[in-house]
């Protein structure tokens, strides 16, 4: 019996969590604008090599 109650409670919490996630995603996409820019154009001539001397770029 307790297991059934726990199961139901967990199911309700899962549904509430999904609803919360759904609303949070809508708010993030529609109400929030602008994020940290990924533009790193100020960095030039980036070069990298691993220890085996295989160039990565």
């Amino acid at each position: 019996m307790i297991l059934i109650v726990v199961g139901y409670a967990a199911a309700i919490i899962a549904c509430a969590g999904l609803a919360l996630l759904f609303v949070a995603n809508i708010l993030r996409m529609s109400n929030s604008y602008g994020s940290e820019s990924e533009d790193h154009s100020c960095m030039k001539r980036f070069k990298c090599m691993d220890v085996d001397q295989r160039p990565r770029l």
Partner: peptide, 10 residues
Amino acid sequence: YVFDGSAEFE
């Protein structure tokens, strides 16, 4: 992995 990197800033 070990990487050796360099870059310039402008």
